[in-house]
């Protein structure tokens, strides 16, 4: 292959012996192998214990009735039956989480990409903009949510500004209930989180953008491509791995959204009217607060399945478009 395409051989002294697994270690010193495993030991033990074992344990808890301070009682599919058919809010939580993810992921990916393209230009003060766009991501989400609540509450600055420009009265009390109107509360969190998370993803996009070889753009320019064509035909295809990473982690993070909804509805989780009840908030409320670990574990397993399928879909979607 290599010789046919005229490129230099990757291994001028012959390939290392990696063909058979059994012979794989022969190329290393024995001490290296021992060291490698020693270094891996602790992270692997933590991973197996807190992720793999925990996952299997979750599946086991989901078929028990258990308040953790009593002895677990096997109940079969009762917990799944309860959350699917009886619980009045489980499907609301699923719907909220999915609706949230479907809006947030495209929005934040697009925003992050746009920001990355902007700060990748040679514009004046680009370092300032990079810092400014990234800033929300390094701030505590609880602190940001509290600030957001002050700005957007019925008595807050945003409603004050709206009243100055005579956009109010809109709501029932002359203000917009960003946080108190069941139709707006989740959308407010969507706005907040799109803004805070896009900074992190901007950094990943930026790193990917800087890996795109300059000469490709130069060649495209010589061929007469405009800026938009360059982005569509060169940038987007070449940063596909970064896009996959961002969409996949963004999706997982969105389905797992908890802290903002938790802080915003303190005292009455999911308020107003269960509109901010996400799946993790449901799991927290049922398990940690409500002491019904079986049901919470069943809901966690359902959430795991949703995330797993969604990630597979994203993988397939972004991979299949790869032809360029």
């Amino acid at each position: 292959m290599a010789a046919q395409s005229g490129l230099p051989l990757a291994y001028p002294h012959g390939r290392p012996r990696v063909g058979r697994v059994r012979g794989y270690f022969r190329q290393f010193h024995k001490e290296d192998v021992v060291m490698g495993y020693l270094f891996l030991l602790i992270p692997m033990a933590i991973f197996i214990l807190f992720f793999f074992v925990a996952m299997v344990f979750d599946l086991w808890i989901s078929i028990q009735q258990w308040a953790i301070i009593d002895t677990p009682k096997f109940v079969g599919s009762t917990n799944y039956n309860y959350i699917f058919n009886i619980d009045p809010v489980f499907w609301i939580a699923v719907k909220n989480s999915i609706e949230y993810a479907l809006v947030v992921v495209p929005l934040q990916t697009l925003l992050a990409f746009t920001l990355a393209v902007i700060v990748n230009q040679n514009i004046r003060g680009k370092k300032f903009f990079r810092t400014a766009f990234y800033f929300p991501s390094v701030t505590s989400s609880v602190a940001i949510t509290l600030l957001f609540m002050w700005l957007f509450n019925n008595n807050g600055l945003v409603n004050y500004v709206l009243s100055l420009v005579h956009l109010g009265p809109i709501g029932p009390f002359g203000t917009v209930g960003f946080l108190t109107d069941p139709n707006l509360a989740l959308k407010s969190i969507i706005g907040l989180n799109t803004w805070t998370t896009s900074g992190t993803y901007m950094i990943i996009f930026l790193a990917a953008l800087q890996d795109v070889p300059r000469d490709m753009y130069e060649a495209a320019a010589i061929d007469g491509a405009n800026a938009w064509q360059a982005i569509r035909k060169i940038t987007i295809p070449l940063i596909r791995p970064a896009t996959f990473l961002i969409v996949a982690t963004g999706l997982i993070g969105a389905i797992q959204m908890f802290d903002q909804a938790f802080v915003m509805s303190q005292g009455n989780p999911g308020s107003p009217d269960n509109s901010t009840l996400t799946m993790v908030l449901y799991i927290y409320g049922t398990g940690i607060q409500g002491n019904q670990y079986g049901r919470a574990a069943a809901a966690s397993f359902v959430m795991f399945c949703i995330i797993f399928v969604a990630t597979l879909l994203v993988r397939r979607l972004i991979r299949e478009e790869a032809a360029f």
Partner: peptide
């Protein structure tokens, strides 16, 4: 009794419904 404060349980329903009757 346990479970009264669960999501979708009686306590949350009362809170949500008081708001709905008052304003919605």
């Amino acid at each position: 009794k346990p479970g009264f404060f669960n999501p979708g349980g009686p306590n949350t329903t009362i809170g949500n419904d008081l708001d709905k009757v008052a304003l919605h």
